[in-house]
Design a protein around this nucleic acid. Sequence first.
RNA 1: GCCCGGGUGGUGGAAUGGUAGACACGGAGGCCUCAAAAGCCUUUGCUCGAAAGGGCAUGCGGGUUCGAGUCCCGCCCCGGGUACCA
Length: 823
Amino acid sequence: MAEAFDPREIEPKWQRIWMESGEYDVSSDDPRKKSYVLCMYPYPSGSAHQGHVRNYTFGDLNVRYRAMNGEAVLSALGYDSFGLPAENAAIKTGIHPRTFTDARISELRDSLIRLGAVYDWRRELKSHDPTYMKWSQYIFIKLYEAKLAYKAMAPVNWCPGCKTVLANEQVLSDGTCERSGDLVIKKDLEQWFFRITEYADELLEGIEDLDWPEQVKTMQRNWIGKSVGVELDLQVVGSDDLAVRVFTTRPDTGFGITYAVISPEHPDLWRLVKKECKVEVEEFLDEVRSRSEIERLSVDMTKSKRGVRTGSYVVNPFNGKEVPLFVADYVLAHYGTGAVMGVPGEDQRDYDFAKVYDLPVIRTVLPPTNFDGEAYAGEGEKINSEWLNGLSVSEAKDRAIRWLEENGIGKSKVNYRLRDWLVSRQRYWGCPIPIVKCKTCGYVPVPFEELPVIAPDDVEFLPTGESPLSRHPEFKKANCPKCGGPAERETDTMDTFVDSSWYYLRFADPFAEDKPFDKDVIAKWMPVDQYIGGIEHAILHLLYARFFTKALSDIGLVPSDLREPFKRLFTQGMVRLNGSKMSKSKGNLVAPLSYFDTVGADSLRLFHLFVGPPGDSFDWTDQTDTIIEGCHRFLQRVWRLALGQAESFPGVTISTVDRKPTDSDLEVRAIVNKTIDKVTSDYERWSYNTAVAALMELTNTIYRKSAEGVSKEVFDEAVDSLIKMLAPMAPHMTSEVWERLHGGSVFKTGWPKADPAFLVSSEDTLIIQVGGKFRDKLTVPSDISYEDALELALASPKVRAVIRDKAPSKVIAKLPRLLNIVV
RNA sequence: GCCCGGGUGGUGGAAUGGUAGACACGGAGGCCUCAAAAGCCUUUGCUCGAAAGGGCAUGCGGGUUCGAGUCCCGCCCCGGGUACCA
């Protein structure tokens, strides 16, 4: 008798084999069909957490499944290793971010190896590696040269106590600093931007053809937020040259304008505020400065002061009426023109505002008779609008735009909600922006030979008012690469989203030495065939990466026909504990390592696959451990079955005999083939939980049937299929079993194919309903006729008991599955 | 606030508009054992009933349909994103 299933014994063995054999290394000249499976590269938070386990289990399963189907699968691992936590740790403990990060990378690498994930390890990369930084900076310069990077003023969160810039997550909901408790203010700094808005339309159009979850596509469309409308000028009363330009998507509602609003940051603000309102406006601006953007857009209109009068009035160009001008915080400076017209009849937010400030409401669209809301934003007939009366909303829009344009008051305009990407970070632990500022030459890129620009190690991390790099005189001092004169080095670093916007390209060609990657090699592997990551990245990372691919394609670094990086996307659900995302920063981790030491990685992988649909998040609870143990028991059961140990346990006898297959054997064969069919389609549609369930059922069936006696040939065939289908899920155990049974690797055997002969059956279950309610079921021939089915149904005592003497008024038949008798 | 999801037994979940609860976890009972663990078998939504059998049931309220967990409308609650967490 062979020994019991002990993951602690076999898992390290196979991990060593996979690592040393290099069997998952791939090269560009591989003749097999190329395949690129990628998990979003992780922020190295130390040993893997359950979210990682989930992500990499799905990733590794896909890699192994595709490999079993004969594809050359590119699988690589890297680390998003710049970022805030390492810098915070440095401030707290004095440990250098590199030391801190490298230690955590090796922990993460170890835990992913222990999970059994396989990679082409030659391609491993990390954002903070000088080689990687060199090419990040090179790409930045290319974008700058292509006029896709520029500098502009933008506000940051500034903590007066810490004298430092804060990330949004470091600002508490009451607007104070999480560290010092000081009230955080907005401060304007000159910062670098990427011109992602240049690609707004293409980013929007491109969504169409992506094989991505509809949910993510919708989120991206809304984020880009294309809106077609018109810009028009509202003349300021008592001034010849001053007008407030507003953007609206509803020019048809012009006759309903009863006020106008400018944003607190509007450049003309102080020209518009009358003397008598000055004090009040100043007080209001102080209040607004402490509010975050989300707060500005979210606070209930009726609960707090949202705006004050400027004292100025503007003229409604449609009817010449003078309406008051307000300054209010729900209008944002960077969207549209930073000013809006107030139409309370057709916009709910305007309605709320008008109620608070006692402004008139004029409806310009006739709501449906049953409408009992406040503002009405729907379709309808125009009213109260003079020459627009009687038209539909869209007709009136066209007419109003034409009128505004003919009279030189306004013109058509397309606006996007999407803003340019602010890439500057006033931090140390990021990739330095490779620019030198010269008084005479302006912003000059650092010459190629001097890349990468690497931040010095001897910096002071304690917050004293400036970013660590700008306080380092030697680093800051530079000579202008153009004129040679004295100059200043840029001390901002890049947003870590820059690193994650091109790593998938470097994975395809990490061997290039004189360029970030070779175009032909990119053409071989890109796009990524299956990208896998958390739903929390649905917008920012995925949009930035799409932008990079398009920009690099236009610049010529990647093939011109490569316009989208990720062909197919799967967004996994999150692991939650006590109601919120399980993460290191929240301190609510359940470490996977302890499971590796007990039930093993295979059991944990199987658990993550089995516990629910991969796209759903799930809550880690007190009962989770028992489910993991259940998965472990299932693997043990398969182990015993496959290695013929089942009979050594009381209550089970497996009898296999050398004989020709009987009818009972054919039954087992049919189940095996049906399972192959189901599991294969479940793999394809990412329904791993039901695939596991099907394998459990198959296992139960083999046990039960073999207790009755089954031919050795059929039994072996069933077990082999089971092991193969389980292999991408539980690679260690299945490898070990396969080696013991047959020698060699289960992953080189190919994915099992179902024999179609076993998938069709001559009988079906006919459901009989009366009035849509289930009453009986019958086993019938698959080709049963309507007449026969109805006769059988009416003959059923259960049906007769309900129908009694009533005559069927209608019969709905979906043969051979369903018959519904309506009486 | 806005955008995107979700809500089904004691628990995780299953279910091309057609038998609600597959597969597990947990519970109950049994077999094996000196005993236990492990393993194996039976049973398990709620409710009425001795049983046969019936009724109820997919967050709440409406609607469409012969038929709704599934589609539509309106609510409630929970989660993700909201541009410097990644």
